[in-house]
Design a protein around this nucleic acid. Structure first.
Lengths: 144, 144
DNA sequence: TTTTTATTTAGAATAATTATTGATAAGGAT
DNA sequence: ATCCTTATCAATAATTATTCTAAATAAAAA
């Protein structure tokens, strides 16, 4: 087994370093494509790095999101979630179990043009959130 | 001047009454089409009904939203906003001044079909939020 | 009228997030 | 290497939006 780290370096810009904590938080997000909250990231990171603190996880997530290497996802007023999927996509949010699933936006660029934003406004990004019941919960609901 | 209330009655359903507080909160939302937060609604309602409390405003907003006569609008993790525009529409959120403006979705029904939600999932509603700079702030930014 | 149920209010409680502070560590210049 | 500056981390305090609790009030039902 090789003992060197052959992953490509990740530039965070703005004089920010890729510290062990930031790398760990980043790894946690890359491992699974679910959408963990800061607390969930904290719990997963803690397994391999017991000394990490929740405040640091918040800081890391903020830095990583600011650098654009992960995305912060907000559905309604629930705790923020984070994901490593950088491709343009929307989110499906289950009203019953709270799961968040990615929605592929095949025509993201097209879609953006259909929004009639106020004249003179500039667009930075857009978020699409669909709320309903995920397949599993929909099935349970039908059975009732 | 007539002293009777000739506004059409609003049914809140579920055994809920249209109380003076609920009516006041509802009026505040109908008066302007901006998107006040609960605290802003509270301040406006307090002018004509000084005894109203913030908790009551939260309760009223929740009841009105539950009955479907007003809409709760969430952008990012900011405080919830409320609006009386029941037509399907998206929201434009200014990154600089925080203003929230309605975006007309002429083809809301069409749009909904373009989302490839997970197979077997049921859709309840969808939210579209565009983030950027409103005309006023975009102009200021250009001047810099 | 009595009983029940819904509502309001003030204030306490909660939960997510941010801010503060002191300690530690990394980088660059000398 | 040594000094100096800046970034980072961890613990904990503080903040903020919102919800909960409990007691009082009011309206509807019986």
């Amino acid at each position: 087994m090789s003992d060197h780290d052959d992953r490509p370096p990740i530039d965070l810009g703005g004089g920010h370093r890729m510290t062990p904590q930031r790398r760990e938080v980043y790894e946690v997000l890359m491992e699974h494509s679910d959408h963990p909250t800061a607390t969930e990231v904290f719990m997963r990171a803690k397994v391999r790095m017991p000394s990490i603190s929740l405040a640091t996880v918040y800081n890391c997530l903020d830095t990583l999101a600011g650098a654009g290497v992960v995305k912060q996802v907000n559905v309604d007023r629930e705790p923020s979630r984070y994901c490593g999927n950088l491709a343009p996509h929307g989110h499906f949010h289950c009203a019953d179990c709270g799961t968040v699933l990615d929605i592929d936006l095949k025509n993201g660029a097209e879609l953006a043009k259909t929004f009639k934003v106020p004249r003179g406004a500039t667009v930075e990004r857009f978020d699409i959130a669909v709320r309903g019941r995920c397949p599993k919960c929909a099935k349970v609901a039908r059975a009732r």
